[in-house]
């Protein structure tokens, strides 16, 4: 049983590391603010769930697991709120989201 949990948690940790890396790459590669926020939300949800879930499996039934669950729940509730606040502030300041297929010179001024 322990070995199954170990393997599962390793898989989750590895996948979490991959998703964190891809999210960071996306934040660098994407052409403007709103598309970058999609990459950031990738690391905020998927990667956070996988990494903290993987550690929780390693920790087992201890106080640490409850703390990790609280941290995860908190991250999942606050990160969309922060994204919403950021996006609406950017909209209100007059930064218009671009539409349509990607243009290569598409950096927002």
């Amino acid at each position: 049983m322990t070995i199954v949990l170990d393997i599962l948690s390793w898989i989750m940790l590895t996948a979490g590391g991959v998703f964190v890396f891809i999210g960071g790459l996306g934040a660098l590669r994407m052409p403007n603010l709103y598309t970058r926020m999609h990459a950031a939300s990738l690391t905020d949800t998927m990667a956070a769930v996988l990494i903290i879930g993987g550690i929780m499996l390693q920790a087992g039934m201890t106080l640490a697991t409850i703390k990790l669950a609280t941290i995860l729940l908190f991250l999942l509730f606050t990160s969309p709120t922060a994204s919403n606040a950021l996006a609406s502030a950017a909209i209100l300041s007059g930064l218009k989201p671009e539409e349509g297929p990607l243009r290569r010179d598409g950096d927002a001024e």
Partner: peptide, 11 residues
């Protein structure tokens, strides 16, 4: 909507 990557609620 925001939590799902690929879609973002603006307002």
């Amino acid at each position: 909507i925001t939590l799902t990557p690929g879609t973002l609620a603006l307002d």
